[in-house]
Amino acid sequence: MSDAFPQLETIPIPVATATEEVSASRFGWFRDMPILVKLSTGWLFLVVFGAIYAKLDESVFGGALPLQDPNLQTNNFNAETGEFGTGEPLEGPSASHWLGTDAIARDTFARLVHGAWVSLIVASVSATFGVVVGGLVGSLVGFVRGRFETVAMAVIDVILAFPALVLLLALVSIFEVRSLGLISFVIGVLSIPAYTRVARANSLAISNREFVLAAQAIGTRRRQILFREIIPNVLPTLLAYAMVAAAFVVVVEGTLSFLGLSVQLPQSTWGNMINQARRDLKVDISQVVWPSLALTLTVLALNQVGDYFQRRGAVRQSSL
């Protein structure tokens, strides 16, 4: 071994140094964050908390926070009271409706918070699909190369060549059921090619790094190299990319909702809130502004955080 690769004796195998940095201060990484990234992280935390809270409010929190029923039409007939409500459509912000009401007198704040759940699930599922499947396939083909890579990447290129939104529209139209699970699954599957490309590119680069060559040279099994050298080094980039991709997915879901092809009504999503409010733009622009703002801030935040982690994740290391 040493005869074949004499230089190995003088090349130190890189060892992780991040642990030492973190040990200096557990939250040092947070302190070092630019303010915009901190704000973005805060916003994302709010969105995630709001989404989870909205979903589990009744069952877990017992309605602890004053979040109204997002589907209650406050001017419609109420079976419990046996009377029509006195709410008004397109009401302005008030103590009872913090962000006003929509065209059928539903509380906009409640719908906005519940809408976050859809975005969260779709983004999470898509990222999971992308990182797990796309990451694995991309890392594998980048490392193995050869005919397998050619075939796999040809398939990926064909899928990527299709306009994603058109393909999504077609798939969602074929599956007429509008469940959150189905929408997430479809978007998740369509996310795989992009992750595969990112993972492959990184895998190709890492496969030529010294520590991988060294591992090969000392006769480490290929599977071991893949899982212990390649994938761990691809992962940080992939996770950072997932944040950016999640932003895109949130917008895609919003687009589907806007077109009436996302989850079934009356479930609120930011996209369908924008769609339903656009009719009354001239009367009350705020009903379009709130969900648009939530969507914009979330996408911006995901991009900021994603970029930040992408920069930080550009460390290559060996665990062998």
Binding site: N71, F77, A79, I104, R178, P266, N272, R279
Partner: peptide
């Protein structure tokens, strides 16, 4: 959007009877 709003009005009252399940589609 106009029809989507209108269809949800009837949906709300009908489902409050707890005797129907309505699949709203567009």
């Amino acid at each position: 959007p106009t029809l989507i709003a209108a269809m949800q009005v009837g949906f709300e009252v009908a489902t409050s009877t707890e005797l129907v399940d309505i699949n709203l589609t567009n």
